[in-house]
């Protein structure tokens, strides 16, 4: 963690020597901060006293099930909605001023649509978008960063889904922003497209920029983010590096081989919250592996090849965000076990 921070600092120094716009590392304060933000839509509480801070130059992954408040948080950060309570600052100012200053870029969710206008070449679209910013990156560099150099002459309506997404990434970075929001940026991409996308994004964030992204592909989070924030019901329930979050979740995976076992009986074993039987392969997710194994032995079922492993990020995610989870206990555990990261669980002042 520390090594990575140092590397980042070095990278930003290199960039400054190379000229160009002042890098965020020089500026004061966090890239963004939520303090006590409450936002509700009629009776639905979308953000429940959200506290969150992201340092300049950090790459943060925002996770959470649908309805956890991720999109509301992002729309507040972009100044599209004003918080009903609490304070939000982006790059040391309010969200609208930050957006107007051209230091913020965003790639939003567009559902099944392309998010691009028709009847225009990719190069012209990127050039027009660049012209809306005060200090844009050169168009050729934006195209190269997004892997679009070869597609600059292509009409937008002739792009594949993955290519259109790269164009939207190009539009998000065209203004050479200090801070970029990416809401589900790889949603329509195939595996290779996703790999390429994250490689592009890492190159971009290495220049000292702050990146905040939301995704459902948990495998990507592990490889890309410096820090993960898990949201549930409008508040932060876990906050830390991927390894910290995984370690803090008590879920263990118990695997064994057994013939003719009844799945319904497995679910009743102590500690088990999920059971899966495929042929003779049995996989149990348990909050107390020791108790589960004792209970399993007590049933008298014959089994072989038993194996107990820790939670992967997906299990950790499920454990943190399911209604059964004791969210705040877990959040406290995560916060206290990683002193390198400021603890920010839901309601702790």
């Amino acid at each position: 963690m520390l090594n990575r921070r140092l590397r980042r600092a070095e990278d930003s120094r290199v960039m400054r020597l190379g000229g160009g716009p002042p890098r965020p590392a020089e500026a004061e304060g966090p890239a963004l901060r939520f303090s006590g933000v409450v936002h509700r839509y009629r009776s639905i509480l979308a953000l429940d006293h959200l506290d969150l801070e992201v340092a300049r130059g950090e790459t943060l992954a925002l996770l959470g099930p649908n309805g956890a408040g991720k999109s509301t948080a992002i729309s507040i950060l972009l100044g599209i909605q004003r918080p009903q309570e609490g304070e939000v600052s982006v790059l040391g100012t309010d969200p609208r001023s930050a957006l107007a200053s051209g230091k913020v870029g965003a790639m939003l969710q567009v559902g099944g649509a392309r998010g691009l206008p028709h009847g225009v070449r990719v190069g012209d679209l990127v050039a027009m978008t660049s012209s809306l910013y005060r200090h844009p990156a050169p168009v050729a560099r934006t195209l190269a960063r997004s892997g679009l150099t070869a597609l600059a002459e292509r009409q937008t309506q002739r792009l594949s889904g993955g290519q259109a997404q790269r164009v939207r990434f190009a539009l998000a970075i065209a203004g050479d922003p200090e801070l970029v929001f990416l809401d589900e940026p790889t949603v329509a991409m195939d595996v290779e497209g996703r790999r390429r996308f994250w490689a592009m994004m890492r190159d971009f964030s290495r220049e000292g920029r702050t990146v905040v992204f939301a995704t459902h592909h948990l495998d990507e989070v592990d490889a890309v983010a410096d820090r993960i924030v898990v949201m549930r019901k409008g508040a932060v329930v876990a906050n830390g590096a991927a390894s910290t979050i995984k370690a803090a979740v008590p879920t263990r995976r118990v695997r064994f081989t057994s013939a003719g076992v009844d799945p319904a009986r497995l679910r009743d074993l102590d500690g088990v919250n999920a059971a899966c039987v495929r042929g003779s392969q049995v996989v149990l997710d348990s909050l107390d592996a020791d108790a589960t194994i004792r209970a399993l032995v007590a049933t008298g079922v014959a089994f072989t090849d038993i194996e107990v492993t820790g939670a992967d990020l997906e299990q950790a995610f499920v454990a943190l965000t399911s209604d059964l989870a004791e969210a705040h206990t877990v959040a406290d555990a995560v916060a206290s076990s990683d002193p390198a990261v400021a603890p920010q669980s839901g309601r702790t002042p």
Partner: peptide, 18 residues
């Protein structure tokens, strides 16, 4: 109407364009 449906108007909203 087409640009609202495609999400292009939303993309423009997150640029500095007033």
């Amino acid at each position: 109407a087409a640009e609202r449906a495609s999400g292009w108007t939303r993309q423009l909203r997150v640029t500095p364009l007033p």
